[in-house]
């Protein structure tokens, strides 16, 4: 079940260069959502007709709140950054499938890159077993303290070496050699591709959260295609990131097509 809510903006703070954290009062979505799902956020700018998909970073179902962490990359996200506290913003959700937490797993590996880190916060909170978290960014990964507070073992990488390991998260993982029963990830496509390769070599299943340009966000327009070859099937198909995803199994994504 999805709904449109006019959510009150409770917090809209800058947490890093060009990155904001927005907490909304959105009781229906907070009640229904799970980690890895996203909401469609409408811009309210007449000439921009399409909603913007933004992952849900944290869910507080008891108090009816959700938190979105977004980066300014264009007109829509710039508009969000200027929305004052107390205003209502139109959102639809929860959209997409979300992560599937592997039951009875002893150890989970979470891997986030750049603006792909936010949805892993709620996942880390929902995970029962032990979590090892790898976070990377160009220079300074966001939200690292959130994972530490949740008791996870956290490893940091930055491309320019300004913090933690110098290089990307997958290179860091090759050094640390983490063990686990499931990998969960969100980040740039190139990172997810190398991670899927790492996971295959290490024989660990990996869930990847993908991005694609969307129109409807609910599975009706087929605008958001990703090429998937299901296990045991010889032919591939274009699945919908907004409905069949955004989370797919890494070994089913056709990375080079």
């Amino acid at each position: 079940m999805k709904k449109i809510e006019y959510a009150e903006i409770l917090i809209n703070d800058k947490i890093a260069d060009d990155i904001y954290s927005m907490t909304l009062f959105s009781p229906f979505i907070a009640k229904e959502a799970k980690a890895g799902q996203f909401v469609e956020v409408y811009t309210g700018l007449g000439e921009h007709i399409l909603p913007r998909p933004i992952s849900i970073s944290e869910i507080d179902s008891q108090n009816g709140k959700i938190t979105l962490v977004y980066q300014i990359v264009g007109k829509g996200t710039e508009y969000f950054s200027k929305c004052p506290i107390g205003d209502l913003i139109k959102i639809m959700g929860p959209c997409g499938n979300g992560f599937e937490i592997k039951k009875n797993a002893k150890k989970h590996i979470l891997v986030g890159g750049g603006i792909g880190i936010p949805p892993l916060v709620q996942l880390c909170r929902d995970i029962k077993g032990k979590a090892v978290v790898f976070l990377g960014a160009k220079s300074n990964p966001v939200l690292t303290d959130k994972f530490r507070k949740l008791g996870a073992e956290v490893y940091i990488a930055s491309d320019d070496g300004s913090i933690g390991f110098k290089g990307n998260v997958v290179e860091l993982m090759k050094e640390i050699k983490p063990e686990g029963d499931m990998v969960y990830s969100c980040g740039p496509k190139i990172m997810l591709k190398f991670l899927a390769q790492w996971a295959k070599e290490n024989n660990i299943p990996v869930q990847v959260s993908m991005e694609e340009r969307m129109a409807c966000g609910i599975g009706a327009c087929v605008g958001c295609a990703v090429k998937i070859r299901k296990k045991g099937e010889s032919d591939w198909q274009n699945l919908k990131v907004c409905k069949d995803g955004p989370v797919f199994m890494g070994d089913e994504v056709m990375w080079d097509e």
Partner: peptide, 20 residues
């Protein structure tokens, strides 16, 4: 029909383009 490769959607002023 399998349709075209992504990206299939582009937002433009007052509308959108699709190549589904």
């Amino acid at each position: 029909w399998k349709g075209n490769n992504a990206p299939r959607i582009a937002e433009v002023y007052g509308g959108m383009l699709n190549s589904v």
